[in-house]
Amino acid sequence: MNATSERPDAAAQIAGLIFAVLLLDPDLVVREANPAAEDLLHRSARRLVGEPLLDVIALDDERVAQRLTDGEARLTVRGMAMRCGERVTQVNVTVSPLATHPGWRVMTFSEVGQGEMGDQGREETALRAPAILAHEIKNPLAAIRGAGQLVARKLDEKDRPLATMISAEVDRIARLIDRMQRLGSERADPVAATNLHEAIRSATATVQAAGKQRVEMVEEFDPSLPPVLASRDALEQVLINLVSNACDACANERAPRVVIRTRFVSGLVSNLKLGRAIRLPIEITVSDNGPGIDPILRDHVFEPFVTSKASGQGLGLALVRKLIRDMDGRIGHQRDEREGLTHFRIHLPLAREEGEQP
């Protein structure tokens, strides 16, 4: 029989899940871990197996830790903070006891938002409405601008600043509408093999040229990383937004510092799109030592029109997420209060080798 027609056994099915799965014995010791757990917990299965669960992770809810002591308790928790090493991740957790093996449990973790493609689809549908409206607004805006320029030629010198202000405000609204249209666009930029570090350095040079030189920028690159599959222009736009935001966030610190880190993530990081799993082993992290995003906004930072900036429109991070999703990637946000750092992490796919099947 052809191997591809054989029914996958239980081990193969668990290994293919995009959610992290741990098998725990009655003493809460890890006995098995799937590839997604290796990635989420940043340890190989060899290093996880045999370790007490609460030596691997720390949970911010004492009630959850207490329930884990009950070997027969079922548990479902959404949006809980989990610390693993220095990283804090918002996760959904389930614990399922095995009736056939008293005390043994299966524990699953998924990052908040992972696999929720229905929500993404609804969000993108909602964004297309303002994009269509924006298209209808641009035509009369052009007419207003033209009329303002015509009037300016006929006004006295002292009155011309008013006409100039009209043109400037029309231009500002037009730029905002352009961003709304891009958010609602269904057309993604074409992707190709892209040198990650060249894109990062180009983006940081752009940010520094915009007057952010006072902020120390630190590169912690893995020079061995292969090309990613991305749109160079879109990736640079994403990085410009993230690095610029990070500079703004820490600008008032005594020693403002932004760190851009790249690394290869071991194990399997997956994104479910159109029924297929996509490996996302390349990680970019942009970190700053600012005070962090207002806790009220942290769960909504990627939503349109959400911003903590007095002069912001709240479209920057929404556009960042759209561009990353268009490249089949993922982006997340974490605040590490213990270290006083804010992290934005991007995961991207590798560029395929010539002849390799998608």
Rank of each mutant, 00 (worst) to 15 (best):
K138L: 08
N139Y: 10
P140V: 06
A142E: 13
A142D: 08
A143Q: 15
I144C: 10
I144Q: 08
R145D: 15
A147L: 14
G148M: 09
Q149I: 10
Q149R: 13
V151K: 07
K154Y: 05
L155H: 08
D156E: 09
D156H: 07
D159N: 14
R160I: 01
M165N: 11
R172Q: 14
A174W: 02
R175D: 12
R179S: 06
M180K: 09
Q181A: 13
D189M: 09
D189E: 15
P190I: 12
V191M: 12
A192D: 13
A193E: 09
T194F: 08
N195R: 03
N195I: 07
L196S: 01
I200V: 10
S202G: 05
T204Q: 12
T204S: 09
Q208T: 13
A210T: 05
G211S: 10
G211W: 03
Q213I: 03
Q213S: 15
R214D: 14
V218Q: 12
D222W: 03
D222K: 06
D222S: 08
S224K: 12
P227R: 13
P227A: 14
V228Y: 00
L229K: 13
A230D: 06
R232S: 12
L239F: 01
I240N: 03
L242G: 04
N245L: 00
N245F: 04
N245S: 10
D248E: 07
A249F: 00
R254S: 14
A255I: 05
P256L: 02
V259D: 09
V259I: 10
R261W: 05
R263N: 14
R263H: 13
V265I: 09
S266C: 02
G267T: 04
L268P: 00
N271K: 10
